[in-house]
């Protein structure tokens, strides 16, 4: 029995603590990633581990580059990332600034603002599906009432409407976390900086542009990459709300991956889409990892 309290063996204790995580990562992340690359290189419908395997081929990637579906989903994903990311960041920052003010009931306000984050995606989606219902949905009623539209919007069958419906739900569900993260960033800006700026005669806008934004820049960077990746990854909202339709107008890379693999049972093609998504995500997250590399020691 090794005595781990001995200074000679303390480092071994560290490795021992790390072992479960390393083994787990190897088994459930690294191996599956390698396996998915392997699957993407085989012409298989339902992938299995062990047993017969197909010879390696680039067929799936050839399909990918020539498939209109793939390019469409790439375009849909990009549009969605920009819409959801941009809007979440702007209203997230506004909300963070708001609940960072000093007023009574502030902690209660924070509690409410972040609440949608805790609501499961499926639940959030079915609520919105009902609110956006084309016959009896409260949103169509409100839009008609104010006179913004003169006919109920068909969120189910109109491509543009469906796309924005998905974006709505994503923003409602995702932006609270953005504002919480930005709030944490705001709170780490020392009050003295603002006092010094006030002494120097800086007005509210100058304080915002010369102190808040620069200090918040790293957090903003991290947050926008996180939001981007979240939109890339998201499955439940789109799948439950529109199933990727109508006519592919909400089919992101994520949905396409799933559809190919588990609706059409073309796992080889699905895996190819997934691997490409992974590569794109890796490029995007380089920004984030670069920023964080220093703090990881």
């Amino acid at each position: 029995m090794i005595d781990f309290s001995s200074p000679r063996h303390r480092a071994k204790f560290g490795y021992l603590l790390l072992a479960p995580a390393v083994i787990m990562m190897a088994l459930i992340i690294i191996y599956p990633i390698l396996l998915s690359v392997d699957i993407s290189l085989q012409d298989v419908r339902i992938a299995r581990v062990g047993g017969d395997r197909e010879p390696w081929t680039l067929e799936n990637y050839r399909w990918l580059t020539s498939s209109a579906e793939f390019w469409n989903s790439l375009w849909v994903t990009a549009k969605m990332v920009l819409t959801v990311g941009g809007i979440s960041l702007i209203i997230g920052l506004a909300t963070a600034l708001l609940v960072n003010q000093k007023f009574r009931g502030r902690s209660l306000a924070r509690l409410f603002v972040a609440l949608p984050w805790a609501v499961p995606e499926v639940v959030a989606t079915v609520i919105w599906a009902w609110m956006l219902d084309s016959s009896f949905g409260v949103i169509n009623w409100a839009l008609l009432k104010i006179g913004l539209v003169d006919q109920a919007i068909q969120f189910g069958s109109n491509s543009t409407a469906a796309f924005f419906a998905v974006c709505f739900v994503m923003i409602w569900k995702g932006y609270p976390l953005v504002s919480i993260m930005l709030l944490a960033g705001l709170q780490s800006i020392p009050e003295e900086q603002y006092q010094a700026a006030r002494v120097d005669g800086a007005n509210v806008w100058q304080r915002f542009f010369y102190i808040t934004l620069p200090s918040l820049a790293p957090v903003l960077g991290v947050t926008s990459v996180m939001t981007t990746l979240w939109v890339f990854r998201d499955f439940a909202i789109i799948y439950v709300l529109t199933q990727g339709g109508p006519i592919g107008s909400t089919t992101t890379l994520s949905i396409l991956t799933f559809e190919q693999s588990f609706a059409f049972f073309r796992m080889g093609q699905g895996a190819a889409v997934g691997v490409v998504t992974l590569v794109i995500c890796a490029f995007i997250s380089r920004a984030l990892v670069g920023r964080f590399a220093n703090s990881v020691h």
Binding site: I28, P32, A47, F258, M267, G270, G274, V275, T277, L288
Partner: peptide, 17 residues
């Protein structure tokens, strides 16, 4: 850090297998 960015829809295929 990077593994937080893996697309779940990709992982789901090999995990299923």
């Amino acid at each position: 850090l990077t593994s937080k960015m893996l697309p779940a829809t990709l992982l789901v295929i090999p995990l299923f297998a």
